[in-house]
Each structure stands twice: as structure tokens, then as C-alpha cells.
């Protein structure tokens, strides 16, 4: 049981936190702009590399470099919106979806050109985990990632339920026509959607780099579980996306635990868990756990 917590549950929550932060952006963009943003993973990559530069140049720890990551990633997202998505806004969304594929490739190629294709780390060496009560072994960075995600979740909840901007966002996500008739400034809301989505993606990107390493396919590799998490939580429901991310992260790790003496699923198949969950939701509960919009 201790093994389960140390080696399956905690890494699962960490992984889930990263999925969750990425999935919030996917879910909000899907809800408000009505398209699947395939470049979201690569926004994470941009964030991770922006932080890497700050770590190199200023010699600060990766967590302190997060503001730089956020600024660079938000600029990248706003620029992509201005150049590629806004001109396509009035066309059927499939155009924007395809454009976002293109943006994903552009972002990745820029990262490869600027930073090279090698994988990098924020810090050389390895940390021994902190041991609690002689039984729980938890890596410091996992504690940091999990606590930071919890704090961001609370902040996001407050923002969406208490502030005017947050309420407007939910209104647009729930019913865009009604929101427009009510006189909400859609472009401003879209701008803030990008800023929040990109900022959370940047943080998630830095967390991935902190947990393992920084490489140019970092975000792209996580795109599928992030979409699965957004669907599981319900499209346009940011808090649902967080729950979805955690569930998928934990499910992916926990499914390989030998609960009944033998491994439930061979570890080499754990990538399939997100797929299976996504397909099951699409068939049996397309609105997601938190009653999101149907696609």
C-alpha cells in the first residue's frame, strides 16, 4: 500500500496536475472560441524553454523563472490569435482547427531553431525525496507541483465565480449568442481566454521540465491526455478540466499497480488509458462529468 502511494499515486497526481493545467486552456478555448486548439501542447513547450533561458541567463531556479515563461507564452498565444485565428473567426471552425495544427508546427520549429533539438534539464543531478513519517517518500518538486496546482485551482475558481470578467467568460462559454446580445465585449473576453490558457500552459510546461526534462516534443506528447481531460471534465468547464486531468493522470499511473498480485495492465500499455477514457466518455457521456457543452 505504501508502495502504491509513493510510486503510483503521488506521481499520478503530479502527472494529473500537469494535464489539468494544460486541459484548462484547451477546455476554455474550446468553450469560448469553439475549436480544438492543437497548438496548446506546443505553447507548453514554449513556456518550458522560456523558463530555461531565464534559468541560464539569470541563474535562478526554475520555479522563479515561471513569470518569464508566462510572459513569453502569452505573447506567443496572442500573436498566433492575431495572425492566424482571428482572420478565420467567421469561417467554419475546421479552418481554425487546421490552422492550429500549423501554429503547432511553427511554434515547435521556432523552438528547435532557437534552442536546438537536444533535451535539457533545469538542474543537473537528482534529488533524494523527502521522507515523511518514515514511510512516505515524496520528491520536493512533486510537492511543489501539487501545491501550486491546488493554489491555481482555488484562484481560478475565485476568478470565474466572483470577478466580472470570469462571469463574462462563463456566459460566453454557455451561450455565445446570448452573451453577445447582452453586450459583452467578445474580443476582450477572447483575449483574456488566451492569456489565462497560455499562462497555465506555460506553468504546466515548466512543471514538466522540472519533473523530467525539457525537449521540443514535450507539449505535443501530452496533447492527447490533455484533450481527454478536457472532454472528461466537460467542454468549457475549467474546473471540470482540472478534475479530468487529475483523474486521467492518476488512472494512467495506478492502472499498472499489481492490485491483485499481478499487474492489472502491462506498463507499456498505460498510454492507452487516456485513449480508452476519452472514447468511453464520447460514447456514454459526451457532455462530460461537469455537464459541459456538447460538441
Amino acid at each position: 500500500m505504501i508502495d502504491f502511494i509513493n510510486f503510483y499515486l503521488i506521481p499520478g497526481i503530479t502527472l494529473g496536475s500537469i494535464y489539468a493545467l494544460g486541459a484548462v486552456g484547451v477546455s476554455m478555448i474550446f468553450g469560448i472560441l469553439r475549436f480544438a486548439h492543437f497548438a496548446h501542447g506546443d505553447l507548453m513547450t514554449v513556456g518550458a524553454y522560456a523558463a530555461l533561458t531565464a534559468v541560464w541567463v539569470l541563474g535562478i531556479p526554475a520555479l522563479a523563472a515561471i513569470p518569464f515563461a508566462i510572459i513569453v507564452t502569452c505573447l506567443a498565444a496572442l500573436l498566433a490569435d492575431r495572425l492566424f485565428y482571428r482572420p478565420l473567426r467567421d469561417l467554419p471552425t475546421i479552418y481554425t482547427v487546421i490552422a492550429s495544427f500549423g501554429v503547432a508546427l511553427i511554434l515547435r520549429s521556432i523552438v528547435q531553431t532557437v534552442w536546438g533539438t537536444d533535451s535539457q534539464v533545469y538542474m543537473t543531478g537528482f534529488q533524494k525525496p523527502t521522507i515523511f513519517f518514515d514511510t512516505f517518500r515524496i520528491a520536493t518538486r512533486h510537492i511543489q507541483i501539487i501545491l501550486a496546482t491546488a493554489a491555481l485551482t482555488v484562484a481560478l475558481h475565485y476568478f470565474l465565480s466572483r470577478t466580472r470578467l470570469g462571469k463574462s467568460m462563463r456566459a460566453v462559454a454557455d451561450d455565445p449568442d446570448l452573451a453577445a446580445v447582452a453586450g459583452l465585449d467578445t474580443e476582450r473576453i477572447i483575449r483574456w481566454t488566451w492569456i489565462i490558457g497560455a499562462a497555465l500552459a506555460a506553468i504546466a510546461g515548466v512543471f514538466v521540465g522540472l519533473d523530467t526534462d525539457v525537449h521540443t516534443n514535450l507539449g505535443w506528447n501530452l496533447l492527447l491526455p490533455m484533450f481527454a481531460a478536457a472532454l472528461l471534465g466537460g467542454i468549457g468547464k475549467p474546473l471540470g478540466a482540472i478534475a479530468g486531468g487529475l483523474i486521467i493522470g492518476i488512472a494512467e499511473e495506478a492502472c499498472t499497480y499489481p492490485f491483485f498480485g499481478d499487474t492489472l495492465i502491462a506498463p507499456s500499455y498505460k498510454s492507452a488509458v487516456a485513449f480508452v477514457i476519452m472514447v468511453l466518455i464520447l460514447i456514454y457521456r459526451p457532455q462530460g462529468l461537469f455537464r459541459g457543452r456538447l460538441m
Binding site: F7, V208, N221, A266, S271
Partner: peptide, 11 residues
């Protein structure tokens, strides 16, 4: 055996 490109191999 394991799959490439995952974040955690602790399990």
C-alpha cells in the same frame, strides 16, 4: 518493457 516518452517510470 516500457513505452517511450512517458514522464514517470516509477511504477
Amino acid at each position: 518493457k516500457h513505452e517511450d516518452k512517458k514522464n514517470s517510470y516509477r511504477g
